[in-house]
């Protein structure tokens, strides 16, 4: 356990000045900032909206980008960059000749990638709430303060996190095995596009495909009834079939990856 924590700390130390780390912070900041600017410039058209509708539009705007493209690509990128730091410096052999259990080194790397995604999603929640409140302070016509959905927001992002774990494990394994950028990136990209298509045409087996989970997580929560103000638009149900599949894939691939690592010669 100590070796795991030391390795985890080392992962942070190594990446703290890299884009991989800052991406986790800058991505939510940038998206929420852009959304806020959009709302500010259109504020006059929205003064008639209820607090609930404002929140749903604001949160929905961010979530749509996230679920369709950004979260999957961010997962692909993070899985790649935590592994690439060792490929690039040719440090795998050194890492595995240190007096640390191989599993601790491997698990710390995986957990670090997971933490980067967790941090990013937490920041999405924080920035969404922060900017929404800022909006109603700057433009009192925007009545964000009349409605509260902080807890719902946390649930939504928690579900997104769970839905991304399956593809994280897969991408982590690809990036561990392949040194070059194109293979894991290509698979991730093609996987994501296929996943989005499967989920959006409503194929009944889409829930078995890890790359469609982020999109499914959202579509199962936001049924496509676009009539504004038609009651609740968000149906929170975290443990759906796709989330179970995502978790199962994550666990199985994580351990399979470790055994593949043990069998392979370390370059």
């Amino acid at each position: 356990m100590k070796a795991f924590l030391l390795s985890l700390r080392s992962e942070f130390y190594k990446t703290r000045k890299t884009l991989a780390f800052w991406c986790a912070i800058l991505l939510p900041l940038l998206i929420c900032l852009l959304m806020t600017i959009g709302f500010l410039t259109n504020a006059n058209n929205m003064t008639s909206w209820s607090g609930e509708l404002l929140w749903i539009r604001y949160v929905g705007g961010v979530l749509n980008i996230m679920g369709v493209l950004l979260l999957p690509m961010f997962v692909v990128f993070t899985a790649y960059s935590v592994n690439n730091i060792e490929h690039k410096a040719d440090t795998w052999k050194m890492l595995f000749s240190l007096p640390l259990p191989k599993f601790a080194v491997y698990a710390a790397k995986y957990v670090y990638a997971l933490l980067l995604i967790l941090v990013s999603l937490i920041l999405f929640v924080v920035f969404t709430i922060g900017f929404a409140n800022l909006l109603s302070a700057i433009k009192p016509g925007l009545r964000f303060n009349e409605y509260h959905m902080e807890f719902t927001l946390v649930q939504v992002y928690f579900k997104l996190l769970l839905s991304a774990l399956g593809m994280l494990s897969l991408q982590f394994l690809f990036s561990l095995l392949w040194k070059d950028f194109l293979k894991p990136m290509g698979i991730g990209f093609v996987g994501t596009i296929s996943g989005v298509i499967m989920a959006s045409v409503g194929w009944k087996h889409a829930y078995l495909f890890p790359y469609s989970h982020p999109m499914l997580a959202l579509t199962t929560m936001m049924p496509r009834t676009k009539s504004a103000g038609a009651g609740k638009q968000l149906v929170i149900n975290i443990l759906t079939d796709d989330v179970y599949v995502s978790l199962a894939v994550a666990v199985v691939v994580f351990f399979a990856g470790y055994f593949i690592l043990l069998k392979r010669s370390i370059k």
Partner: peptide, 28 residues
Amino acid sequence: IGSLIEQPAIYLHLTGRENLVNRVGLLQ
């Protein structure tokens, strides 16, 4: 055991000192 295999395994984006600090942390 201390080892050096082929070209040295160092993180090029870290300074020389940071490379050593990282290892000192890992090995306590």
